[in-house]
Design a protein around this nucleic acid. Sequence first.
DNA 1: GGCCCCGCTTACTTCAACGTAACTATGCTC
DNA 2: GAGCATAGTTACGTTGAAGTAAGCGGGGCC
Lengths: 131, 131
Amino acid sequence: MFNPACPSTVSPFRIADKWGGLVVLCLEDGPRRFSELRVPLRRVAPKVLTETLRALERDGFVTRTDYGENPPRVEYELTELGRTLLPAIAACREWGAENFDALLAARDRYEAGRYEAGRYDSDAYLPTGTG
Amino acid sequence: MFNPACPSTVSPFRIADKWGGLVVLCLEDGPRRFSELRVPLRRVAPKVLTETLRALERDGFVTRTDYGENPPRVEYELTELGRTLLPAIAACREWGAENFDALLAARDRYEAGRYEAGRYDSDAYLPTGTG
DNA sequence: GGCCCCGCTTACTTCAACGTAACTATGCTC
DNA sequence: GAGCATAGTTACGTTGAAGTAAGCGGGGCC
């Protein structure tokens, strides 16, 4: 169970990286250009988007089509394999839509518990970034 | 879309951290002790397991019960909220079971393409660890 | 008194992800 | 020839997750 080659280590639990799943979502409705992806992704740094797209390409989730024009035009599109990710991603999104508030409430309770216990620490009220 | 408070940033895309999803799976069939979790999780460092469990506790996914005995006995158990993760995790696992081979094949093709292109680099044949 | 058990904690190191800022290449238009 | 547009690349630094190694606490047992 859970050896390094286990599918769970490459499953959509962590699609490529922080942005992988979001990029796949952005491509759900059809091909998109590099600059078109940057807008919904909160202007993610081009370096990071390039890395993400290369990883998705490597894993066979997207194809990259360079039309050799000028100014450059490159389109990214989901492959069939990439489309197989969509149900799992949908399940994750559905979970988020239904339970996000409960999660935040749990965090509030947790922080409140730390406060009541007298272990007050101003930093403790900040998200830890592990989410 | 995709602002910092967006549910997607706390969704099971990345449950707490690398181990969060696996811990939840280990707890699917009932409460487990700290040392019982370490076995299936490939003897993950106690530090890391503690951090993971604290994060899951913070988010309301697991409860921690200290029986105050000696030697210590502590049990971790999924909450109702924690159980809501299971369908999404199942979807991810199902994806892995069905498509893991296709993903590895895609990676092989990708590496082979790099080789054919003459950009041979021995390191390029190693997984990059982003999976 | 010394060792075991279990569930941690602490100190330190490593490494990949992420981000910022600036720069590049190419052809087109003004 | 200056500037614009697109799709990047390069250099650099920060952050945080993960791992290593060792120690702690306190009752039970010999």
